[in-house]
Simulated scan of single mutants.
Amino acid sequence: MKRFLRDNGLGIAFGLLFLGTLVGQAVAGHADFNNRQIVDGGSEISFWSFLTTSEFAVDVAENWQSEYLQFLLYIFATVWLIQRGSPESKSPETIGVETDEQQQMGRYATEDSPKWVRAGGWRTAVFSRSLGITMGVLFLLSWIAQSIAGLAAYNSEQLAQLTDPVTWPQYVGSADFWNRTLQNWQSEFLAIGSMAVLSVYLRQRGSPESKPVGAAHAVTEDTG
């Protein structure tokens, strides 16, 4: 058990942080929702009822989709784009999809390589793009979930104001939807861009996200 916890510490730690903050968001969101209900002359709802509301669902989904979009774009962007001196970037000599030898594919695969790498054909082609494909699917699913939950929340407000509800295509093209979406996207792009640039000149000893403390600023793809 100790070895399992040590070997999976990063995933476990962030999994627990995710659950803790999700619960915190639900508690705070429930309190805020009920406060607004009272102000608007409505009735309070229970915590469990709040978890099934479109208001809670859209707040969660819109954050998820922006995170998966961030990683999706970064995965593909770092194939062809570099930031010289950043450990978040490949070296200039390895721009592109790289050779089979560099990627340990084809005749360069080893006995320890994943089965689908050693299998060749379509399975190797799919596996070599599996991370990007998975992130793309997760982004699409969370984006759809956000749009559906957002539509329900938006139409609920429309009906409360005695105005006509809108259809899904109308909502996806609305200012409300894109205001929610773009305010998350811009923060993700700022964060990942800042990390790529600041890691050229700043260090964090012992972190694989940082170069060795004594490494020159111009050194790229050198972690420690």
Rank of each mutant, 00 (worst) to 15 (best):
V126T: 08
V219Y: 00
A153L: 05
D40C: 01
G150R: 00
G106L: 07
A153V: 01
E221C: 07
P169K: 05
R36H: 15
S49V: 01
H217L: 10
W64Y: 14
R6W: 05
W64V: 12
Y171T: 02
Q146K: 11
Q161F: 07
D7V: 05
V58A: 02
Q37E: 13
V27T: 04
L17Q: 08
W48A: 05
R107D: 12
L190C: 08
E93N: 09
E157Y: 10
S43P: 00
L140C: 09
V166P: 02
P92A: 11
V60L: 14
H217P: 02
W143V: 02
G206K: 06
Y108K: 05
S43K: 13
L162I: 05
T181N: 11
Q37W: 02
S210Y: 05
G132W: 05
F127S: 05
I45N: 06
F71H: 12
E44N: 11
T220L: 06
L5F: 12
D222N: 13
Y74M: 12
R36S: 07
N35Y: 03
L16N: 01
G85Q: 03
L17P: 01
Q186S: 08
L16W: 05
V60Q: 12
Q183Y: 13
Q37S: 14
S187Q: 14
G85L: 05
N35Q: 13
V126F: 15
F47L: 06
G150W: 02
V197D: 01
D164W: 04
A31Y: 08
P165F: 03
Q102C: 02
I82W: 02
R107Q: 15
Q25E: 10
G106T: 08
V58L: 08
Q65D: 07
F177R: 00
V23F: 15
W80A: 10
E101W: 03
R107C: 03
Q103E: 13
L69Y: 07
V97A: 09
S91A: 14
T223E: 11
R180I: 01
S89W: 00
A160L: 11
F56I: 03
G24I: 04
K90G: 13
E67L: 14
S46G: 15
F50A: 01
G173A: 09
G132Q: 05
D40H: 10
T53W: 09
Q204N: 10
Y68H: 10
E62T: 13
S199M: 13
P87G: 07
T78N: 12
E221Y: 11
Q104M: 11
T167V: 05
A196E: 00
I12N: 09
T110I: 06
S89D: 03
S54H: 10
G224R: 12
E67W: 13
G24Q: 06
D222H: 15
Q83C: 13
Q158D: 04
P208E: 07
L141E: 03
S49F: 00
V58D: 00
T110E: 09
T52F: 06
G224V: 04
G173M: 08
E101S: 04
A191Q: 14
G193N: 12
P165R: 04
F18K: 03
L51T: 07
E111I: 07
V79Q: 10
E111G: 11
I38Q: 11
E67F: 14
Q37P: 00
